[in-house]
Amino acid sequence: MLVFLLNRLWQSAILLVIVSIIGFTVLNMIPGGPLAQYALDPGMTQADLDRLAEQMGLNRPLPVQYLDWLLRMLQGDWGTSFRDGVPVLQVIQRHLFATLLLMGSSTAIAIAIGTWIGIRGATHRYSIFDYSATIGAMVALSIPTFWFGLVGIYVFSLRLGWVPAGNMYTIGNESVLNYLHHLILPSIVLSLVNVAVWSRYMRSATLDVINQDFVKTARAKGLTERRVLMKHVVGNALLPMITLAGMQLPSILGGALVTETVFTWPGMGRLFLDSLGYSDYPVVMGLLMFSAILTVLGNLIADIVVATVDPRIRVG
């Protein structure tokens, strides 16, 4: 187990460096750069822009800039945002709560409903329920989330007035109820796609298990169908789901780009879009590393959990 962990750590470190090099290069290849937004200001002279480039270290050769960034990163210094002068880790931390709240609740909804639909679809294969679930999943997967979001806002908030048209809370009212009220629509919209994904995976995982010999044995032993399903089928079908859940970790913390914009949700997804728009290199790099680390971590955790719960698998 220890050897396995050390190996994985080692591989992950190399992977992260490669990711950072690619990210840094691509980021700097985008024309414009952090000073482009100031270049259009009629009062900003070329001398002003040159001075800023010098002060921000942007006039150094790219490899030098990268190595500087990497060395600082290794010492735990994630840099400082160009936009608001706040340390990158603090910027991330400021947006993390909003994203956790939204993604956490939508993922919880998605897993609960998705798992249930998946199992029922598998046990009642080719039933009307199964067909409608399949079609529903296809529709949910093929229609973009922002469309669901805008329609949701139009119907439930502008027309019916049941829920707010976005925002995380009403300014001046930060009660838990107010947060929950604002959470309803975006978390449902966001979970639509995830329900579809989870139900499809769960359905096929259940089908894989449902005709296995040990299930037949369980039935032959005279167990009730319910007991067979809960103890033998679902337990085993959930195993591949652990890996899926591990892979969801970065997206749970990384936020939803589109949904957060449509619902004016001040989370990580919008932070990424905004930072990209302003070429806020330190924050974009920070977010990239953050989600890369989460991806690595999510997979690692999933592997360990699978190995722990599935006696057939041993890591080493």
Binding site: L150, I153, S157, L158, P164, A165, G166, N167, T170, I171, T261, V262, T264, P266, R270, L273, D274
Partner: peptide, 17 residues
């Protein structure tokens, strides 16, 4: 209040936010 999308900005003006 920062509302990143101009359409949403207008929607929230209509809704009174």
């Amino acid at each position: 209040k920062y509302i990143p999308d101009v359409t949403v900005l207008y929607t929230q003006f209509k809704s009174g936010d």
